[in-house]
Amino acid sequence: MSTLFSKENKEAFTKPLNLDNPIAVQVLGICSSLAVTSQLKPALVMGISVAIITAFSNLVISLIRNTIPNRVRIIVQLVVVAALVTIVSMFLKAYLYDVSVQLSVYVGLIITNCILMGRLEAFAMNHTPWASFLDGLGNGFGYAIILAIVGAIREILGAGSILGFQILPQGLYDAGYMNNGMMVMPAMALILLGCVIWVHRSINKEEKK
């Protein structure tokens, strides 16, 4: 058991959560992170789906890494990922239909999410299956955290609610407060994400000192 949770393996899981975050530091997987964050719920569902897919695709590729010919490895990786995404997409359609309608094509776009290809190329191709699994899980959750932060901010400011429950009291609206319609627009996701990265970088710089 001790080797299963050795220091390197733990680091493979915890590092991407903060210091080596896939979105804020490695700049991977931006595409889908912006379009699905207008509310918290789709953002969470998307984050968890990506975490599951990164973990299992890392595991599968790491298991067969020695048998893949180098020239066709991208196609092999894409097919493995596409198969996993198809499973997740069908699962969402069956159990979370309304969210899967909201996510529309962005579920399919997990295939081309750079986090997946990035981690497969950089980690799974030359590490053991268990370490790759943890690395995938860590990167997926690192991605989910950022998505959840941006989604929560946009939902509070844009609709005054979280996960569909009204948070801001009616009294505030009576006093003249209005929901910020800008927050629901796609452009604000970019600006907010820019601010999240700004905060993340200035905090981490302080820690290093």
Binding site: A187, M188, I191, G194, C195
Partner: peptide, 23 residues
Amino acid sequence: VPKPLRGLGITFITVGLMALAFQ
């Protein structure tokens, strides 16, 4: 540009403003 915002951060905000224009 403020130091922590350099690189990726400011690029995102720029793209956001461009997206607002395209809206």
